[in-house]
Amino acid sequence: MSLLALEREVAALIVQTLKLKTDWSTIHPEAALFGDGLGLDSIDALELSLAIAQTYGYQVKSSDPEIKETFSSLRSLARAIEKNRTK
């Protein structure tokens, strides 16, 4: 799967998992997911991590030195999933 297609898939997963009233196609791939961007918080991160583990078999962990980068935007999250996915 191309990174672009994966980005779309992850955007849809975020919207579906977090029940955002946002059309997934309007999430800018480089906009911030947390804080000022989509406004997600740590509980969203927890929910999202469960969905990512179930869909892609990637167990997110805070001790990962790239964790902040991973959750910074849709694009970086898709890249991390591409790199770490087991399914």
Binding site: S42, A45, L46, S49, L50, A53, Q59, V60, K61, S62, S63
Partner: peptide, 10 residues
């Protein structure tokens, strides 16, 4: 203050 399940395990 572990957040993710993998953090709790570690």
């Amino acid at each position: 203050r572990p957040l993710f399940p993998e953090d709790v395990r570690m």
